[in-house]
Design a protein around this nucleic acid. Structure first.
Length: 579
DNA sequence: ATCGACGTTGTTTCC
DNA sequence: GGGAAACAACGTCGA
């Protein structure tokens, strides 16, 4: 007997009905039943991930908050599909290949459509599935569908194998390539095929009745929900709310928003963009609408500027091997980072004894989101600033807890903050007292996320170890008992790190992407001489006058010296002239 | 080739 | 308190 004809739409990211070209195409073929599916591949669920070393999970979701958010996205999609007489078919506890194998033997599949995904694990997965379908004579259609502003393959052609190393070089190109218009939303879908055919094998098909729960995925139940709820409708609502404030949109400058605000000072659309509840391209055009009749800020600080950064990092991650690693990554400076499990753990749990750092890390764990500058501050502290731990370890922590723990953006930003790529001024270190003080003198933010410090006087809120014992007693917070001693003297640690970073820069080694990705480990020989141990902290204050500062460690080359000197002079002159 | 300008968002001191 | 300079000095780009 002839099998029933179906088209299959495969949701992975792009969990939306708006600006979803491959879905729209199938939705318009009303004569063929449509099966909208989502697969929880058993490879990526907690049980398997723990038991097997899953290298190829790189880029896949891992944290509990993220899965909760994802489930909410699926529930929202399912509800919207049900309102159109369909539903979302979720498969659990099977591998992706198994599910497709099952589909092609159960139905006469006409076509498979999906939105492209640039992450390495996804590209491998998609190539495998595409092959499987094509072996069965099934047409496969995919497109970028607005997850990036511009088609990444078109971008690749434009750059013709080169990699734009600076943002400034990259962003105007996005504008010249023209961001395509978003496609219309899907408002009707063809009916479902007969699902009971899928259940012929009973449980073996693992087609869920409804969107599963967190515990069904193998996670412990949520203790407390984070403040953000997943879903296309949630995302669009948030976007519209933000865009309705015209003056805020037009005046947006990222560096002027506060990382210590109790209510997010930015859009918090990133979790929705990460999973594609909101199309980046659609958001871009909606911002453009607001800009149209108003003066507005410009990249890099503006909202469009933020999307250009995202685009740049997506493009780089798409074209750079081992983008989320140091070794074998041609963009990444090779640094002799440490990997100290105890330190990593203290950082991860918000027990460093440095209130600003701990508050941010605790907010991250509890809420799945922290402000961009708080990410900067903790990433700087963890790597080149104080702890000198490997940025990959920090990146993995963010990847686990951030709702927007996006493969491309997370790796790029960790490289940025650790001065491994894009940014090189390693002597600019965020202070763990001075920086938060600029935004929050009273320490309200710290007191919220580190409640044991809530009675500490503002004077000591960022340095409670300096509080006299009687002050600690009055505040009911004894350092070393109720709140940890600082794990480092942050000023000393900064000086040590700068010496090491200077040596790393002197070695000038970036990763080499050799054939096969080249995975050998970096040896001491690669790294050159360890930094001389006693170069040091020069007394900060020292009457300056116009003497050259005494040189530390290696001597500068003549070129460097000259350059620095001259430049400074010019700058000074210029400024004087201006005033 | 060399040099100056510049880089999404630093800190501390001095005036 | 606000603004400017000192701090120490990187890579990339382009003239």
């Amino acid at each position: 007997m002839a099998l029933e004809k179906v088209n299959v739409y495969w949701f992975r990211k792009c969990l939306r009905l708006h600006d979803n070209e491959p879905l729209l195409r199938l939705a318009q073929q009303q004569t063929v039943p449509l099966l909208p599916i989502f697969i929880f591949d058993s490879k990526f669920l907690p049980e398997t991930r723990e038991s097997e070393n899953q290298e190829d999970c790189t880029g896949a979701l891992s944290g509990q908050n993220q899965f909760q958010f994802l489930l909410e996205c699926l529930t929202d999609l399912d509800a919207q599909l049900q309102a159109m007489g369909s539903k979302l078919c979720v498969f659990l506890n099977r591998t992706t290949e198994d599910v497709f194998q099952h589909l092609v033997t159960t139905f006469d599949v006409q076509a498979l459509h999906y939105a492209k995904d640039s992450e390495p694990f996804a590209q491998i997965r998609d190539a495998t599935v595409t092959q499987l379908m094509e072996d069965n004579g099934i047409e496969v259609h995919s497109s970028w569908a607005g997850h990036t502003l511009v088609d990444l393959d078109e971008m690749k052609e434009h750059w013709d194998g080169t990699v734009p190393k600076t943002y400034k070089k990259f962003w105007p190109v996005v504008e010249t390539l023209n961001v395509p218009a978003s496609v219309e939303s899907v408002t009707a879908v063809p009916p479902l095929p007969a699902l009971d055919l899928l259940l012929v094998n009973g449980d073996a098909s693992n087609l869920c009745e409804t969107v599963p729960t967190l515990t069904e995925l193998g996670f412990p139940p949520l203790v407390k929900h984070c403040p953000f709820y997943g879903g296309e409708r949630q995302g669009l609502e948030r976007m519209e709310a933000k865009l309705s404030n015209t003056s805020w949109v037009c005046g947006f400058e990222k560096p002027k928003t506060s990382p210590a605000s109790l209510q997010p000072s930015t859009t918090v659309l990133s979790p929705y963009l990460t999973l594609g509840c909101v199309s980046a391209r659609y958001f871009y055009h909606q911002i453009q609408e607001v800009y149209r009749k108003n003066n507005h800020t410009k990249p890099p600080m503006s909202l469009h500027g933020q999307l250009y950064f995202r685009e740049w990092f997506y493009y780089l991650s798409y074209t750079t091997p081992n983008f989320d690693k140091m070794e074998g990554n041609p963009l990444c400076l090779q640094v002799d980072w440490e990997m100290d499990d105890a330190k990593i753990q203290q950082f991860k749990e918000g027990r460093t004894g440095l209130p600003w750092i701990d508050a941010a890390m605790r907010q991250l764990r509890e809420e799945g989101w922290i402000h961009h500058l708080a990410r900067h501050a903790v990433a700087c502290f963890f790597t080149r600033g104080q702890l000198y731990q490997h940025w990959e370890a920090g990146k993995n922590i963010f990847a686990e807890y951030l709702l927007d723990g996006d493969y491309a953006l997370n790796a790029a930003n960790w490289m940025w903050l650790s001065c491994s790529a894009f940014f090189t001024a390693y002597f600019r270190v965020y202070g763990v007292e001075s920086f938060p003080k600029k935004y929050d003198k009273a320490g309200v933010y710290v007191k919220k996320y580190c409640p044991e410090l809530r009675n500490m006087p503002s004077k000591y809120i960022y340095c409670p170890w300096d509080a006299p014992l009687e002050v600690q007693q009055d505040a009911n917070c004894i350092i070393g008992v109720d709140y940890p001693h600082p794990m480092v003297d942050y000023k000393e640690a900064k000086q040590d790190c700068m010496v090491k970073m200077k040596a790393a820069y002197a070695r000038k080694q970036r990763g080499t992407a050799g054939p096969g990705g080249q995975k050998r480990s970096v040896t001491q020989a690669d790294l050159g001489e360890p930094p001389a141990r006693s170069v040091r902290k020069k007394p900060r204050r020292q009457k300056p006058k116009k003497n050259k500062p005494k040189s530390t460690g290696k001597k500068k080359t003549k070129g460097t010296q000259k350059r620095g000197k001259k430049k400074k002079k010019v700058t000074r002159k210029k400024r004087k002239g201006k005033n």
